[in-house]
Amino acid sequence: MRLGVLVVLLAVLALIQVAFGALWIPPARVLEALTGPPRDFTDTIILQQRLPRVAVACTVGAALAVAGLVLQKVMQNVLVSPSTLGINAGATVAVVLAMFFGMSGGTLLFPALIGGTAAMGATLLASRLIAGQGDRRLDLVLAGSMIGILCSSVSTFVISLDPDLFGDLMGWLVGDIGNFDYLALPVVLPVVAVALAIALILCPQLDLLTTGEDQARLLGVNTALLQGLALALAVLLAVAAVVVVGPIGFIGLVVPHLVKLAMGETGRATLVAVALTGPCLLMLADILARVALAPRVLHVGTVMGLSGGAIFLVMVLALVRRGRA
């Protein structure tokens, strides 16, 4: 039932997405293009430029949201997500470096994987080191932001070496679904599909982890293996998204939280709901990006940073207050 509502919402947002763009195309004309034979360039815009954008928004939104959910389950920490753990920034710097060395397209996934994994590893290591007497969950996020700042400093430096090579990268660096990397799609789409399927299969085992590691071990779960597998899956999903659309933050943080409010945090239905809500949020942000300062078009990454940062702030305050009470 709730999933049905989400599907309808997704369809409506997708239709608005297709109507919006550099030029406004009335929804009636959109439906015409979707059903009738192609006539002019408007059909090209709808069928070959805007529909792929919707497809990308769905794939990437789902990938980031599910990555966030898996991370939160494995780490038992509502504040972690691909962006707060530094995975996005790590993948970004790896992609920028790889591009400087002449790589492009789908092959960028491999350096991005290395970068994302390394950044997450560094975050985990750093969080152990800075761990104070306080909340361990906060240490992790603090470490993630340190690694994130470090990575983006390096990206900035590499770009400054030859801005003419990276000029058309501005939107991607901030994160945007309007300007995505067409070249990487053929590699990234299947990867995301397979990873989402695996996440769906593993879902019951992951839910066991949320009851506590000891409990899960008693029930015969190989926790170390499961955790490792889940982390790898999350990094893969997040990194695949970064390669295509750049580091869009907070989808992975906010979406699991929203879904949890409505339908709890365990079960396959929750995972599907998260995979549906991610694209909804992303498209909503994209529509906002187009109307907020119209005629100037903002980047989705900026809108997500603004709104996601505010939501993150509320979450942090709630968490800290509860910890104190």
Partner: peptide
């Protein structure tokens, strides 16, 4: 015109 093969924009 410069066509940006990465992000689908035109300069």
């Amino acid at each position: 015109v410069l066509a940006n093969d990465r992000d689908g924009t035109l300069t």
